[in-house]
Design a protein around this nucleic acid. Structure first.
Lengths: 169, 169
DNA sequence: AATGAATTGTTATCATATTACAAAAGTTAC
DNA sequence: GTAACTTTTGTAATATGATAACAATTCATT
């Protein structure tokens, strides 16, 4: 059934038409909300849109200040609640290393059990996602040996993205 | 050369004599400092000792308050500097999910290229380490396909530890 | 329209982390 | 042994990230 065993390379590091990329992700989120009976309210949608403007991770207060410019709330709880919603429903990911958030470029890809790995460029801050299928199994095996029941695994990788590597040459 | 392909089960989740466990880790850190010409000053050593008292992750301010009781500094920079030193040299790990720190039980095990995976019990807060050798290769392969150069990978797994699973039954 | 549930507004506060600069301790060279 | 230098520590102030608590509003249902 599955053609690629380890998922596709992350779109963030490939040249692409970003407007289309963002529109696609927003559309996917809208559809998912409709399907699951969730409400993509103005604050929530705008938060997602702000994050979709780039593949960089943004801090909550940065998002908040942009929301403020649109007249959509100015206090921290506003943005944290929106982010809670978006993260719980898989439209946004929290990058723990950065205490920051990135939009998920393909929410539909997260149904599986494979944990997403985040590739974080320490130079430009771009965050890409890649689904490393066999990380799940090897991790599961290691955990099982320890008698540990896995609920949620998160993989964050720091390094240099293709673009920055090229410019450094 | 290597007998176990994926490392040993984490000690944190096995019954063990903790005094010996802590003494071993402290000794290893002392030796490593001597060898590398690093100074394990009182604040640094005490910080490590505090973390070695348990396999729980502690927040910086919790550590700071304990340092304070020993008359070793009372302002945040004191503990953050000590933690910087200990983390940079592999004696302590930061758990990003918790914004907290755990002592490394076996600093010598970290020379290799394999990333450590942290098993975090959401019930009791105990953190175990396990070296999942093949996570490195699969992650490396996925990153390479994306043209991404990995500098540092961190795997954090949340779940239920053997002890808590047992008590829940 | 009345009810109840979900969402948002707002104030206050807590938790985590860093900057900047001064003082002290350790190291090296003469 | 002391002068010059480097590393570490002390301290104050502040930046950054996140939550608790409660009131007001909006939405869906009856």
């Amino acid at each position: 059934m599955i053609e690629e065993s380890e998922g596709e390379p992350p779109k963030a590091f490939e040249p692409h038409d970003h407007a289309t990329c963002a529109a696609f992700a927003l559309e996917a989120a809208t559809a998912a909300c409709a399907e699951r009976g969730l409400r993509l309210t103005p604050v929530r949608q705008r938060t997602l849109e702000i994050l979709l403007e780039s593949h960089q991770a943004l801090g909550a207060y940065e998002i908040l200040s942009r929301l403020g410019k649109d007249g959509l709330g100015s206090q921290p709880p506003v943005v944290y609640r929106a982010l809670d919603f978006l993260v719980s429903n898989g439209f946004v990911h929290k990058i723990e290393r950065l205490n920051a958030f990135v939009a998920c470029v393909d929410p539909a890809a997260h149904g599986s059990d494979a944990p997403t790995a985040f590739l974080i460029c320490s130079d430009c801050g771009t965050v890409g996602e890649t689904v490393a299928q066999d990380v799940a199994s090897s991790l599961g095996a290691a955990a099982e040996r320890a008698g540990f029941t896995v609920k949620d695994a998160k993989v964050e990788v720091e390094g240099i993205c293709p673009d920055c590597r090229k410019s450094a040459e």
